[in-house]
């Protein structure tokens, strides 16, 4: 077991690797965490995700833009790929699976991938349909996988309108499913009008929403751990 001090050092290394988009350092940090007995869950949430939270702040402050964000995400995945096989599933009180994709006619998937990353971190089962996805496929995949959440993305005004149809179909077949829509042309008004449960209109908001989601998971993780300890 690593000492408290050494653990902090490894977590800090993972965090900085994400912020400084250093894939090699992220891999190294992840391997050190495993070798030296840092809990993989801590390494993910207190290392990689903490780094991404900082990246979110830099993005909001317009110090970082999308290219930096993509490189930070690469570093996060480099660490996550090593840590993930060793994660013990904690009972966080949420069971997650999500269908995600960019709607037909739209070949932009950066926003979608950023959101997907956070679902991956949070340990959701992610059914990624990719981009330019025929509308029926969202409905089929949701039914097939019984996912609680469907995320639809469109970058262009010219493709956004397709989402309305998917939302209608999904709600008709499964009124309980939660639907998030995202993309540059999307607004709160549109989300409400079309019956979506949430929206993100740019990468900042997508990232902020995704980080909020993971931050609350992080809190739930701490609570779950506290409960474990009490037993």
């Amino acid at each position: 077991m690593a000492t408290e001090e050494r653990t902090q050092e490894i977590l800090e290394k993972l965090k900085n690797a994400v912020i400084e988009y250093d894939e090699d350092a992220a891999k190294e940090g992840a391997q050190e965490a495993l070798d030296e007995g840092v809990k993989p869950n801590d390494a993910i949430f207190d290392g990689l995700v903490s780094g991404m939270q900082e990246v979110g702040k830099l993005f909001e402050a317009e110090e970082y833009f999308v290219p930096e964000l993509l490189m930070c995400a690469d570093a996060l995945y480099a660490g996550l790929d090593i840590l993930k096989p060793h994660v013990e599933q904690l009972d966080l009180g949420v069971k997650g699976s999500v269908v995600i994709g960019t709607v037909e006619g739209d070949v932009h998937d950066i926003g979608k991938n950023i959101v997907k990353m956070m679902f991956d971190v949070a340990g959701f089962n992610v059914y990624d349909l990719g981009r330019d996805v025929p509308l029926d496929q969202f409905v089929e995949e949701q039914l097939k996988t019984d996912s609680e959440l469907v995320c639809l993305s469109a970058m262009m005004t010219t493709t956004m309108v397709g989402m309305q149809k998917v939302i209608e179909d999904l709600k008709k077949k499964n009124p309980d499913v939660k639907i998030m829509i995202g993309g540059a042309p999307v607004s709160g008004d549109i989300a409400e009008k079309w019956g979506a449960d949430g929206y993100a209109d740019d990468a900042t908001n997508a990232l902020a929403d995704a980080i909020n989601m993971v931050s609350s998971l992080k809190k739930m993780k701490e609570e779950a751990e506290a409960r474990e300890k009490q037993k």
Binding site: E104, G105, V107, D132, L135, T158, T159, V161
Partner: peptide, 15 residues
Amino acid sequence: INTYPNSDDLLYPTI
């Protein structure tokens, strides 16, 4: 390019 010739929706061509 893909012009989505078989789609009934209004779709712009994509690469």
